[in-house]
């Protein structure tokens, strides 16, 4: 994998994606222990997973447009939560 610095977001923007990232991880781990027996909670979880996934993707779409980050086919962006820096990650040729 190759990593290239392509931009930076504000701390507030970082906080937003970090919160969504943590929530997505939390929901994924919760999905491992919650069964359909607990119908009400299960449905809430499924909805939340969908909603959080959408917001997560929306953040990347909005930010990449706003800042005009470099992109390549097969590449993906990564954020460093400490520095707020955005990296373009590409598979080694």
């Amino acid at each position: 994998m190759a990593k290239k610095l392509v931009g930076q977001v504000t701390p507030a923007e970082r906080d937003e994606i970090q919160r969504l990232f943590e929530r997505r991880n939390g929901l994924n781990e919760l999905a491992k222990i919650l069964t359909a027996d607990n119908q009400e909670l299960y449905e809430r979880l499924v909805n939340d997973m969908g909603e959080t996934g959408t917001k997560f993707q929306q953040w990347w779409d909005t930010m990449s447009q706003q800042y005009g980050w470099e992109s390549v086919p097969d590449g993906s962006w990564e954020i460093d939560f400490n520095s707020c820096e955005i990296y373009l990650v590409t598979p080694e040729p």
């Binding site: 919160r19 943590e22 929530r23 939390g26 781990e29 919760l30 222990i33 919650l34 909670l41 979880l45």
Partner: peptide, 19 residues
Amino acid sequence: CDYFKLQTYKKGHKWFNAY
């Protein structure tokens, strides 16, 4: 840990997103 996750989720506790 499972109990913690379930309870924070049920209660809508902020720590569900930060633990």
